[in-house]
Design a protein around this nucleic acid. Structure first.
Length: 611
RNA sequence: CGGGCCGUAGCUCAGCCUGGCUAGAGCACUUGGUUUGGGACCAAGACGUCGCAGGUUCAAAUCCUGUCGGCCCGACCA
């Protein structure tokens, strides 16, 4: 028993906080599904339903069943422990928010696509919060006055609402989901950097404790705005993001943000000495067509001309801009917001394009001498890959014609140079020079360094040592808790079901007596082990159902409890029970040692996870 | 919002093209029996406004129109 006594002090991560947090299968609610529901596409979504973790109410809205809720609570607890450890303070903000603060920050417009709006009896509008920068900043604006009160980092775990155009993949992209969001307030940029790093480190620990392999990548800041950010990605073929990474170096970035040393084949730079020359290209409307016979202009020697309509911040009117890329490059819209100075923009319609350029898509070009007078002041944004290019071919800005011998420096009035292209596989890493790879991933966390955008808009200011009023420097940090749960399932499963990491498993031990008659030796032993483990704080589930062994084993594998203790007549005749880690090999244990062996296994599982 | 597909029992689906008898199967559920170490078997039973509305017809799950909902692809998107 000394062994058991020593093992009694297992950490809370494994044994749970409630000494009798255990359950009989027949008393709880675990409606497993033998068949795969038709509308679940990816394996984690299927298992979420089959393993009785959640049920769908309607598209993008799910009910958590007892098993799913237990796993969710485990993830939440890990998140809270690590946030607390990092010095963040838990608060709880309203989900229902007044639109006024969103108008103040400007996001009433820029985030309008995802905002759920509701009206009260007086027909006043309210918002269901998709995030809480405005609320927390309002709080700080009212409460924090001095540098002596800083830094502060507030967090909460709360339901968020987002008007997703197309909810899909179960909890991955839902209309309503649980997020942990944290907001840091600092006196200076350098101090904010410290807060940012604390959160980055906390996130690394959180996902590690959840049993997830994550990859932190440089990320675009999107609608939230801000200076720079990292996303925590779970590599998975079913992910909705694409991550560019280098196998030999530290570089990793979201495709929206990724840079490289440029196209593998450089643009022609040698000036042919020719002036731009118009030539007839009847019916040629694509880069591809111009690269074919009889023209044979490689895509890499063409200039692609796009027209976008931009709405500057605070303005109601849109204006057109031209965007130039190499023919074989793709525009990366996420990179466009910075150079444009606005994130409200869209591709121009053919009618709008004709109005400004006098030609239709397929024949567009920005060669200065071929621009109509109304386009004289048209802003021209050119991708860096085109810098210095010569001998290029592009549209003549006249339907049915192209121009060759174009020298960018000489012939095009570029107003802004910027990195606008999408990186492609195999291009050279800017850090290591090695070929870049691309793979899909699920975004589970995002840390942003925000700067003073919200503190200035909502007046969250403090007085510094010299009595000068300054805006707080902010950071914000999100973890999709429900999405993280599904990502764990997506990463931890096999053909038989879920394989929960111990730290987030709904229960850590499953006892499976094959004969459940109350007076049978097997059931009596099962009851003893169950009670013994429960009083030691192990979260244990007893499968007391009168079902055939096959049913019990299939269900056990499906719900994926990390350790199974099977008690059947055959081994019991030898005075033994069977220990089977989910996905591992079965081992025999003397019945009287069963509890000690289980505690030992849990202890080892915890030790092997700690780093 | 564009394109495609689908709504029949709790779940997975057949029947529809080519209208016609009491609308079917498997799984799940209830009862009884036989079974009992990897999703058993036998028997009996319960479960349906065939998404909804309108139309055509002697007759509609089936054909037509509209509508609502779902799924997939795209667009969009912390």
């Amino acid at each position: 028993m000394t062994c058991a006594r020593r093992l009694f002090s297992l950490s809370r991560a494994v044994v749970g906080h409630c000494t009798l947090d255990s359950m009989r299968w027949s008393q709880t609610f675990i409606p497993t599904l033998k068949e795969t529901p038709a509308d679940a596409e990816i394996v984690s979504h299927q298992l979420l339903l089959r393993a009785a973790l959640v049920r769908k109410l309607t598209g993008g809205l799910y009910t958590f069943l007892p098993l799913g809720l237990r796993a969710l609570r485990k993830v939440e607890r890990i998140v809270r422990e690590e946030m607390d450890r990092a010095g963040a303070l838990e608060v709880f903000m309203p989900a229902l928010q007044p639109p006024e603060i969103w108008q103040q920050s400007g996001r009433y417009v820029t985030a309008r696509e995802v905002l759920y709006k509701v009206r009260d009896r007086a027909d006043k509008e309210w918002l269901l919060g998709p995030t809480h920068e405005e609320v927390i900043t309002s709080l700080v604006a009212g409460e924090i006055n001095s540098y002596r009160q800083l830094p502060k980092n507030f967090y909460q775990v709360q339901t968020k609402f987002r008007d997703e155009i197309r909810p899909r993949f179960g909890l991955m992209r839902a209309k309503e989901f649980i997020m942990k969001d944290a907001y840091s307030f600092d006196v200076t940029d350098q101090a904010a950097q410290v807060s940012y790093q604390k959160m980055y480190d906390a996130y690394t620990r959180i996902f590690q404790r959840c049993g997830l392999r994550t990859l932190p990548v440089e990320a675009d800041t999107g609608v939230i705005g801000g200076k720079f950010s990292h996303e925590f990605m779970v590599p998975a073929e079913t992910g909705e993001n694409e991550v560019v990474y280098c196998e030999t170096g530290p570089y990793a970035a979201n495709l929206e943000k990724a840079v490289s040393q440029g196209p593998l084949t450089p643009c022609p730079l040698a000036d042919t000495g020719h002036e731009p020359e118009r030539f007839a290209t009847p019916g040629v409307l694509t880069i591809e067509a111009l690269s074919q016979a009889p023209y044979h202009v490689p895509a890499s020697a063409q200039i692609k001309t796009l027209v976008y309509m931009v709405k500057p911040f605070g303005s109601e009117d849109s204006h057109p801009v031209a965007i130039l890329l190499r023919g074989d490059d793709q525009l990366n819209e996420a990179k466009l917001a910075g150079p444009l100075g606005s994130n409200v923009f869209r591709p121009a319609t053919p009618e709008e394009i004709f109005l400004v350029l006098g030609a239709h898509p397929g024949s567009l070009g920005a060669v200065a001498s071929r621009l109509p007078t109304q386009a004289a002041a048209l802003p021209v944004f050119a991708d860096e890959a085109l810098r210095g290019a010569a001998g290029m071919t592009t549209g003549a800005n006249e339907d049915g014609y192209h121009v060759r011998h174009v020298n960018l420096t000489r012939d095009v009035r570029v107003t802004h140079w910027a990195d606008l292209r999408t990186v492609r596989v195999g291009e050279r890493c800017v850090v290591s020079g090695q070929p870049l790879k691309i793979r899909r991933a699920i975004e589970v966390g995002h840390v942003f360094k925000l700067g003073t955008k919200y503190s200035e808009a909502l007046n969250a200011r403090y007085l510094d040592e010299t009595g000068v009023s300054r805006p707080c420097v902010m950071g914000c940090y999100g973890i999709g808790v429900t999405r993280t749960l599904q990502a764990i399932v997506e990463q931890s499963n096999d053909k038989d079901g879920v394989r929960w990491p111990v730290a987030v498993a709904p229960y850590t031990v499953l006892i499976t007596p094959l004969n459940v008659a109350p007076e049978s030796p097997g059931m009596q032993l099962a009851e003893r082990i169950y009670a013994d483990l429960a009083t030691r704080g192990v979260e244990v589930l007893l499968d007391d159902r009168d079902e055939r062994p096959g049913v019990k084993f299939k269900d056990a594998d499906l719900i994926g409890i990390p350790l199974r203790v099977s008690i059947g007549e055959k081994s019991l005749a030898r005075g033994e029970v069977e220990l089977k880690p989910r996905g591992g090999a079965m081992t025999a244990a003397k019945a009287e040692d069963a509890v000690a062996r289980v505690l030992e296994w849990l202890h080892e599982a915890e030790a092997s996870r700690a780093t």
